[in-house]
Each structure stands twice: as structure tokens, then as C-alpha cells.
């Protein structure tokens, strides 16, 4: 099935991410992640919730090997990317879009150039150097900027934008990769409540529109319940809850975060 999915790209194979028995220990004998397994397909959006320091960021970075996992496998649309290195790893990373808490834009470059940075995995370095991006990429970037309402900002420097606008640019950069999966690491934690909702709406709608599985680390439980179709509760490096937000009870939350006085 894997072979089929890769060879027949015109038929739009189901885009998916599958994590299998993933473990990570920074220090031997002290696992941060214990035997994590789950699969996300199509345009479902999944929230990963849990207290800080429980390994949410580590989990999401193990997917694209920014942090190498200690054991287990990660499949992107059926391809096992866990043991890839060098050029093959780069090729695999192109299929994984990532959105960050601190936006991670190149502040001194224009909005347009930041969006085009999403194509760096596809475009040879000399083209990037001379800023000779293919016309197709430029067209896509303009229409993407238009759809997120930042078209008139395309020539402005990224550091002149507000937080919400910057995060939109970060999302556009990830979408430019034409990813098979979109990862978001606390995408709303640096934003005000109203902007947070707008960013979540944008992420979910783009995931639907492009049919990409969306994996969001988030500590705001209400936001998670409101926008995602599935919640994975992480505590002490293990999955405590995996199911629809409607069935997430206070008992689960107590188990995930500990204590109960904060629950009203």
C-alpha cells in the first residue's frame, strides 16, 4: 500500500501521520515520552494537551526529527521517515509543515520572502540566493497572502507586523511546502485571546481546504475543545486520553494536569 501511495501521486493518496511506539529519553532511564502511538488521517485536526514539561514539544519535534527519537517509528503518508538522514531526511521534512510559538520568521526579510522560505526545500540554493524563485511559487505565495489578508503587507519587513499577522505569515510559510501534515507547537501562546481564536480558525480551515492532518500542541483546553475533532491528553510522557473533545471529562483533566482546584 505504501508503494502504491507513493507512485500514484495524481490520485491524491490519503495524507496521514502515524506514530508507532515512539519513545524519547534525553537521559538514559528517564524517558520523556513513553511508547506513544496514534494515527491521524485526512483533514482531522488533533490537539495534544498536557502540563508544561510533559513532552508535548519533544513529541512534535520527534515527528520531523528536529529532535531524534530514541525508539519507535514515524510514518508520513505511509513512508517511514525515522531512520532517514541527510538528503533523504530533507526530502521528508518538506512534507511536514511546522508552525511555532514564537513564529520563527526571519525578522529582517520581507513578508513575501518569509513566505517563499517555505519553498527552500524545493528550490536550489543559487535560485534562493538570486531571489529567482519559480513563477509558480510566486503566484502561489501571492494568492496565499491574499487569502490570509496580508497581500498589501507583502513588501513590509516581518518585524513590522503584529503578533497575529506574524503567525499568519508563519502558517503561510508552512503551507507553501505543500505539506502532508501540519504541526503546530503552541501556535497561540504568544497571542491575545481574540487573535488566538482567529489563528485556530485559520489553521483548521487550511487543514480542511488542503486536506492535511493537523497536529496542535496547545495548553488552552477550551480552545482545543472548540476547534479540534480529537484530543490527546499527555501526562508524564504517556497518553492518558485519546478521543473526541465532547467525552473529555473533568476526571480526565484531573488525571492529565493533577489537582482539581483549578477546575471550575
Amino acid at each position: 500500500m505504501t508503494v502504491e501511495a507513493q507512485s500514484d501521486s495524481s490520485a491524491q493518496p490519503q495524507r496521514s501521520i502515524c506514530i508507532e511506539n515512539l519513545s524519547k529519553e534525553y537521559v538514559r532511564g528517564k524517558p520523556v515520552l513513553k511508547n506513544i502511538s496514534f494515527t491521524v488521517q485526512g483533514h482531522s485536526s488533533v490537539a495534544i494537551i498536557g502540563p508544561s514539561g510533559t513532552g508535548k514539544s519533544t513529541l512534535i519535534r520527534c515527528v520531523n526529527k528536529l529532535i531524534p527519537p530514541s525508539s519507535g517509528n514515524v510514518y508520513i503518508s505511509g513512508e517511514n521517515i525515522t531512520h532517514l538522514t541527510g538528503r533523504n531526511l530533507r526530502m521528508a521534512r518538506r512534507k511536514i509543515g511546522m508552525v511555532f510559538q514564537e513564529f520563527n520568521l526571519v525578522e529582517r526579510l520581507s513578508v513575501m520572502e518569509n513566505v517563499l522560505c517555505g519553498r527552500l526545500g524545493y528550490v536550489p540554493s543559487w535560485r534562493a540566493w538570486l531571489r529567482k524563485y519559480p513563477q509558480k511559487d510566486i503566484d502561489n505565495a501571492f494568492s496565499l497572502l491574499d487569502s490570509i489578508g496580508l497581500l498589501e503587507f507583502s513588501r513590509q519587513r516581518a518585524d513590522s507586523l503584529s503578533g497575529g499577522q506574524r503567525q499568519r505569515v508563519g502558517i503561510a510559510r508552512a503551507i507553501m511546502q505543500e505539506p502532508h501534515v501540519l504541526l503546530a507547537d503552541e501556535p497561540t501562546s504568544s497571542l491575545d485571546p481574540k487573535t488566538s481564536v482567529e489563528i485556530m480558525e485559520l489553521l483548521v480551515s487550511l487543514s480542511r481546504e488542503h486536506n492535511i492532518p493537523l497536529l496542535i500542541n496547545i495548553h488552552d483546553v477550551e480552545l482545543a475543545k472548540r476547534f479540534t475533532v480529537r484530543v490527546i491528553g499527555l501526562s508524564m510522557g504517556g497518553i492518558i486520553y485519546d478521543g473526541p473533545p465532547s467525552e473529555l471529562t473533568n476526571d480526565h483533566l484531573k488525571q492529565i494536569y493533577g489537582g482539581e482546584n483549578w477546575l471550575q
Binding site: N64, L66, L89, R90, M91, A92, R93, R94, I96, G97, M98, F100, E102, F103, N104, L105, V106, E107, R108, L109, E113, C117, G118, L120, G121, V123, S125, A128, W129, G170, R173, A174, Q177
Partner: peptide, 27 residues
């Protein structure tokens, strides 16, 4: 941060240098 983002997008080393390191160190 931006270096991590460009690495995560699968950019080759020289592109990461050109678009990540250089714009920040150029001034």
C-alpha cells in the same frame, strides 16, 4: 528560532545560511 524553522522545512544547508544566518548577521 528561524534557523529551526528553515531546517524543519527541509532547506539545504546553504539555503539555511543564506536566508537564516546571513540576514541576521548582515548588519
Amino acid at each position: 528560532g528561524p534557523i529551526e524553522a528553515l531546517t524543519a522545512s527541509g532547506a539545504p544547508w546553504f539555503s539555511v545560511f543564506l536566508k537564516g544566518y546571513w540576514p541576521q548577521a548582515a548588519p
